[in-house]
Computed example of a mutant assay.
Amino acid sequence: MVQGSGEGRGSKQRGFAVKTIRGFRTVSTIASITLAQFTPLDLKVQEVCTVERAKLTGCSPYLSSDIKLHKRTPPTKLAHPATRQGIQFSSAYVQNDIDRLCPPDSTKIFTDGSKLENGDVGAAFVIYKPNDAPIIQKLKLHNSCTVFQAELLAIERAVRWVQDSSIENVAIFSDSLSALQELENKNTTNSLATKTHDHLRSHSGNVKFVWVKAHVGLEGNEAADEAAKSAATSHQSLDFAKFPISHVKRLSREANRLCSEERYTSSTTGVRTRTWLPSLDSVTKLYAIVKQSLHLTQVLTGHGYHRQYLHRFKIVATDKCNCDPNTVQDIDHLLKVCPRYARQRETHIALCNHLDVSPFDIPEMTTRELAIKSFVEYCKYIVNSLKEYNGT
């Protein structure tokens, strides 16, 4: 792990961050990197290292060692290019489409995967043989698995069941377009998809694939969805326990964000920026609405054309405002008190009062787009006029 102070760790990133936010060169490392929404370089290195180590070892630092990485099928295990063949699939939106695509004597299998809010993952397929009661097969996956894995597993196990049962005419229905598109690719290396292709090559019968629109009342699809959710919450043994690399990437990013948040909130520098934007979340919400700009950066960092800053570097003779020889011309004075900007201030405050938000609380203003855009325009007006106002 790279050690050192927050300023030292990000010193090489600082130049890029300052250019990104269009800030003054004196803006602190922590403030510039945070406003630029960069991941600190040492944390990014750790993140990449964690992901690559997981790929090499097949283990996740966030899971027990018995849960292994869901690896791609190696080229040596793939079928010869001449024998590879992806699936083709049709689409069905209503029951009439299903009836049209499938003859009455065919077996219909509906597959589905589900990942619940608490992280539980399940998959299922429901078999409808002509004149027989439905057969429901439920599959439990490890919580690190994705719904994409669940969808592919349901199809793979359904095709395996077809192969073992030696049924000739089968239609497999799935509401996962991404899973079907993966199976459509004859050169896929996804191990669940390649297993499905292997099953299909070994089966002499006709297997048709159909994409169905989800949650439109199709009986088979609704039954598969219910069975997949039931499998997710069940206490049965795991049918599939391989984590995707996206699991490690996501948790590593989350760990980095927590570390970045701690650095930002506990840093002895960037205090002015933290006054306006107390958390990384508030920074994200702000720049989801407005763009980086010289004017806004000057307000957020306190490094700008106002006299308090210029006097600090002996560019002007005094730090006092033209409106009052006893008042320091800082950002707060210009925004909230200076009579030169009274008209623009009153306009902004009136809008915020109408929208029921504080006129100088950025996290609160970001809940109302008109309010934060009004604030940015107000900042722009002040900064654009400061050189003339200060005679510099």
Rank of each mutant, 00 (worst) to 15 (best):
T146Q: 06
L116H: 07
I21S: 00
S266T: 15
N169E: 11
T327V: 11
R201H: 06
T83H: 12
Q85I: 00
D330E: 13
N169W: 02
A158N: 03
I245A: 05
R263Q: 07
A124E: 09
V290D: 10
M1F: 11
T196A: 01
R345W: 12
L69I: 08
L41V: 14
A371E: 10
A179N: 03
D361R: 12
S374W: 04
Q308M: 08
T284C: 13
R160E: 07
L280S: 08
V212C: 04
S166A: 13
S11W: 14
Q95P: 04
C379G: 09
F125V: 09
K140R: 15
P40R: 02
R100V: 01
H70I: 03
N390Y: 07
Y341A: 04
G10C: 15
G10Q: 09
I372A: 15
A227P: 03
T73M: 06
G391I: 01
R250Q: 14
G205N: 04
V376D: 08
E182R: 02
G304H: 06
G113R: 00
H199I: 01
P103G: 01
V290G: 06
F313M: 13
Q3D: 05
L183D: 00
V45C: 07
S385W: 01
L116T: 15
R25K: 13
A36C: 11
K249D: 02
I167R: 00
A223P: 05
H354N: 12
K77F: 14
Y264T: 06
H311L: 11
V207Y: 01
V27Y: 02
S202G: 03
E184I: 02
K186L: 00
L294R: 14
K68I: 09
A150I: 09
A79C: 10
D324C: 13
P359N: 11
L335W: 01
Q13Y: 08
